[in-house]
Design a protein around this nucleic acid. Structure first.
Length: 652
RNA sequence: GCUGCUGUAGCUCAGAGGUAGAGCACUCCCUUGGUAAGGGAGAGGUCGAGAGUUCAAUUCUCUCCAGCAGCACCA
């Protein structure tokens, strides 16, 4: 005889087993209508699940966060059902809930087209209107496999075969159609509602493995109501407006072209941002005890062989024969025996070379060696993305050579610096991950325990939350990853800290310890911005192009109302330039409206308008980007204000 | 690299089997206007590259290249 405890603490005793629907009906009519599932002792269940023992029960409605997930999950099933109704030759596979929606992967010989979406959505809506009830069955394993195989659903059969032996094989029926699923599901298709939309079509490998068949993935979004759906679509539109590729063009920051695919042409505006950012991070590194170096771009393949990169990554390196090519014919031919050089894909082996010059003492450690290192990696073509993922990039790279007992301290120091930099640069949504031992690895479990613990503890000591990415570490050591989000919600790795005992070993780095013995240092590979290119992309998107004054390519434009004030405007612009501000005078024969609009669109943070009055009084009318107001203040005051704001955050 | 889509003026895009159009930007002229587009004129394109079908291709077909979305990859 179950006693049901509700979330508010109220208890209801029943003299018979009760379903969620019964409990809801018991509480109120409206709840009976709204409830779509329930939680029993914290576990999500179908609403018709029967509770036989005492339990904590919470009813889930479509307005709950969990309710929304269930809607999306059901929408995925609905999509599969609609697709199979329209295209019977299609096999279903998996269809999980993802952020803001869901997808479903289908196997079908003929490709889908986004033009099919309308038809599929129509069918989905018909199925919602049909209000097909949900019914769960548990099938014996062998029977389930046989039945799905008989239907030609080989992927489903494979999924069942791979389920753990003790797992119940649950099959959910929505009317005549059914699908293997762990559930729970809404009571009927009506509850899904119609606030969904199919979004995009893409190929995806079965089980995420590129050696497997490519399935056709349909992405959709689903919400509790139309209003939420509209808001979401609007959010996407807004996000598009802050896309760094679009803003890069509009603000004349950089461009990309076919002849240098994956490498950035930085225009004066964009490079100004680069220079400011680089200067900033250089100061931060200096203050934290780093020394800066510069190492070669082209390095003999022999060194890459020694470091181990050649064996693992030569496919992704740009290799150049050290030979004068024969260009008599159209192409260029090289001596097949020519020595091979490679454009460096990373800086670490070169840094070890510097470390290895002379004899190092324990007194030299920790040695923090930084380089704005320009690296080349031959990335897969499909991976390239604006300036976020490129083939030539510059890292704010550094390697810390230290003793094992210094790792914790150095990691803590790094975490503090990274947090401070992200804060200075205006990033709030920073996720930290600890990537732990992968399946293929070297070293003993004890060593991995120790390394993972050192990094985890350093984060905890620094008061930082982090998630664990199981098995995502490098094959020789775990690493920390700092992920920032772009405008469309995509996550990019920027900062990283990686423990590396292997490379010093391979390249024979040593130091003389206190007791006079020769020891191996350990290396910490670390970056905060990651790649300058990617980070500037993130900055652009994070600020929607409205950069803080210190990073703005043009900080102020001085513009005139009539040509009478031209001379004064020139004088103002010169005064601003003289104190180090990036200012321009705009004395074109255009109306003030036109000029204000143009400079606002170009995202110039400050427009200083000068007319006859200002010239006479030696004032400026200052208008800040994003504000419709303007203030008339003295030139001195304006300069003062702008200079203060243009000071980089670390120098304030 | 894989799947699907796209490629027309500097930018955003329209168009059609008979060798191209708009708006903005650009150049020149008029306009001296107080805070988000004043008016007029002009210039600008081998329609991504190559091959094929056709009397005729930028339009149809194929191959390649690049971009976009996702997947895989990311030392």
């Amino acid at each position: 005889m179950p006693v049901i405890t509700l979330p508010d603490g109220a208890e209801r005793a029943y003299d018979h087993p009760v379903s969620g629907a019964d409990i809801a009906a018991d509480i109120s009519k409206s709840l009976a209508k709204k409830a779509i599932a329930m939680k029993v002792d914290g576990e999500l269940m179908d609403l018709d699940h029967v509770v036989e023992k005492d339990a904590q029960v919470a009813l889930v409605t479509r307005d709950d966060e969990e309710g929304l997930e269930l809607i999306r999950h059901d929408a995925a099933h609905l999509l599969a059902q609609a697709v199979q109704a329209l295209y019977p030759d299609t096999q279903v596979t998996i269809g999980p809930v993802i952020e803001d929606g869901f997808f479903y992967d289908f196997a079908r010989d003929e490709p889908f087209s986004t033009e099919d979406f309308e038809k599929i959505e129509q069918k989905m809506k018909e199925l919602v209107d049909a209000d097909l009830p949900t019914r769960k069955e548990v099938w014996p394993r062998a029977e389930a496999i046989a039945r799905f195989e008989a239907l030609g659903e080989h992927y489903k059969a494979e999924i069942i075969r791979d389920l753990p032996e003790d797992e119940e094989i649950k099959v959910y029926h929505h009317g005549d159609w059914y699908d293997l699923c762990r559930g729970p599901h809404l009571p009927s298709t009506k509850h899904i509602g119609k606030a969904f939309k199919l979004m995009k079509l893409a190929g995806a490998y079965w089980r995420g493995d590129h050696r497997n068949a490519v399935l056709q993935r349909i992405y959709g979004t689903a919400w509790a109501n139309e209003k939420q759906l509209k808001q979401y679509l609007h959010r996407l539109e807004e996000a598009e407006k802050r896309d760094h590729r679009k803003l890069g063009k509009e603000m004349d920051l950089f461009h990309l072209q076919d002849e240098a695919q994956g490498s950035v042409f930085w225009h004066p505006n964009g490079y100004t941002m680069w220079v400011e950012l680089e200067a900033y991070i250089r100061r931060r590194l200096n203050d934290d005890g780093y020394v800066e170096v510069k190492t070669p771009q082209l390095i003999d393949a022999k060194l890459w062989e020694k470091s181990g990169h050649w064996g693992k990554y030569s496919q992704n390196m740009f290799v150049v024969p050290d030979d004068v090519p024969d260009t008599v014919s159209d192409g260029a031919t090289f001596d097949p025996d020519a020595k091979l050089m490679a454009l460096k894909p990373m800086n670490c082996p070169a840094h070890v070379q510097i470390f290895n010059q002379g004899i190092k003492s324990y007194r030299d450690l920790p040695m923090r060696m930084a380089e704005f290192g320009c690296c080349h990696r031959n990335e897969p073509h499909g991976a390239l993305h604006g300036i976020m993922r490129v083939r030539q990039f510059t890292q704010d790279d550094a390697h810390i050579f230290c003793r094992w007992d210094q790792i914790a301290e150095e990691t803590k120091k790094f975490c503090a610096l990274a947090s401070s930099v992200y804060e200075d640069l205006g990033f709030e949504d920073v996720r930290i991950a600890l990537a732990t031992r992968p399946e293929m690895r070297i070293g003993t479990d004890e060593e991995w325990d120790r390394m993972e613990r050192v990094l985890g503890d350093a984060l905890t000591d620094a008061g930082l939350d982090y998630e664990v990415l199981e098995g995502e570490g490098a094959f020789y050591a775990p690493k920390l990853e700092y992920h920032l989000r772009d405008a469309i919600g995509r996550s990019w790795q920027c900062g990283t800290l990686q423990l590396d005992p292997l490379l010093p070993e391979r390249l024979d780095a040593t130091f003389i310890d206190e007791d006079g013995s020769k020891q191996r240092p350990v290396m910490l590979h670390r970056a905060i911005l990651g790649s300058m290119e990617r980070f500037i992309g993130m900055l652009i998107e994070n600020h929607a192009g409205r950069m803080p004054l210190w990073l703005s390519p043009t900080q102020a434009v001085v513009t005139t109302i009539t040509s009478d004030a031209d001379a004064y405007a020139q004088e103002v612009a010169e005064a601003l330039t003289k104190v180090g501000l990036r200012a321009k005078a705009d004395t074109r024969n255009e109306k003030i409206n036109y000029k204000v609009r143009e400079h606002s669109n170009a995202k110039v943070p400050a427009i200083l308008v000068c007319g006859g009055r200002e010239a006479e009084e030696r004032t400026v009318s200052i208008r800040r980007l994003g504000s419709k107001e303007n203030r008339t203040i003295s030139l001195d005051q304006a300069i003062d204000e702008l200079v203060k704001e243009a000071t980089p955050p670390d120098l304030r």
